[in-house]
Design a protein around this nucleic acid. Structure first.
Lengths: 192, 192
DNA sequence: TGGCCGATGTCAGTTGCTGACATCACCATA
DNA sequence: TATGGTGATGTCAGCAACTGACATCGGCCA
């Protein structure tokens, strides 16, 4: 074989390590490539972006969520379908708590990376909304349910990586869902 | 005077025009600067970024929202406080429907700009959450209410710029709030 | 065996963005 | 009125992200 196989995963590992050591901004694509034993050009053939290398798993996550919504029982209300999807996703993260935290530290430390994270989350939200529409949910409801689910996930995930917290992500997601329900239900002066 | 004053707003106008004409990616900062009668370097003194020039108003919007939450009556529930804030913001957009739509078309046409928009919205969400905490709202509730408000705003705004829609933004926001309440309340199998 | 294909390398070029330093109208104050 | 400081701009050099075009060559299929 002319080259070592798996250059993509080597690039991912190299990038994660370097971003962790010296930070995202102080890392050069050339350095990542060198560490992975390839050329800078090869990096950009595998990842559109210097940022994208950290978000390779997003596609699989989206698939998982969409499938979970599609597979929810017909009797399940939209909010319950997305709740089930988030529960499935949570299990995936729980398996790699350490890795998730390291990665998240890198992301939250840099604005550009947070931007990229947000657009991935937005894609998840609209993926969920699509899946709900396929179940016959009408449009304003579908979009809002998707957005609400992602909001819950964001808040729960943030609490989860906060090390002072000993709760499981699954539990935190459940709590956040309940809290969202409570908060949207409570209204002192009549709404309109 | 040595230079024409208002170079910042000239840069904004030039950028908006050029982004609209030939698209964001096909526009060079040098071109914007030339059109505004300044140097490329001056552009970057006013805006950190090629993107940021489109988001100059975000600060004012954030201030408006935060003030509205702070100014809501003590009796108002969190969800009602943020609803009032969004209503105030809506009025601001209604005044410039044309401009808002033009700007939004530019943003939605480009991924980098959508990323920037999302991080601005995220900042609004956490600004709202902060304002709620200052009113004594506890933390998971505060964050979730902020996120929920932004979710409502996103969905409502998207529908508003959709020209087939004749409804007012204020009305769409109210509807979206109601829809969110309905969606979070509906749950067929007991949640847990 | 020959030829196509896919992954990589090489190289030149554009553009976003930054740091360092110069300029010069304007303003305050002696 | 002279003097010196300040703020907004210009000039210039340079790095790093990203792209397009073309070359290379091992492996696989006909």
């Amino acid at each position: 074989m002319r080259w070592e196989p798996g250059s993509r995963s080597r690039l991912q590992e190299a990038a994660l390590a370097l971003y962790g050591e010296r930070g995202f901004e102080n890392t050069t694509v050339a350095e990542i490539a060198e560490r992975a034993g390839v050329t800078e050009r090869t990096f950009f053939r595998h990842f559109t972006d210097k940022r994208e290398v950290l978000f390779w798993g997003a596609g699989a996550l989206q698939e998982l969520l969409v499938d979970a919504v599609a597979g929810a029982p017909d009797s399940a209300a939209p909010i319950d379908a997305v709740a089930a999807a988030l529960a499935a996703a949570a299990a995936l993260f729980e398996q790699r708590r350490e890795g998730s935290m390291l990665r998240q530290d890198i992301i939250t430390a840099n604005t550009e990376l947070r931007e990229r994270e947000l657009i991935k989350l937005a894609a998840l939200a609209s993926g969920l909304a699509d899946a709900l529409r396929r179940r016959g949910v009408e449009d304003p409801a579908a979009s809002l349910t998707g957005e609400a689910a992602i909001a819950v996930f964001k808040v729960a995930f943030e609490r989860w990586v906060d090390t002072t917290n000993r709760l499981t992500l699954t539990q935190l997601i459940r709590d956040s869902f309940d809290e969202l329900k409570a908060v949207t239900a409570a209204t002192s002066p009549p709404a309109h």
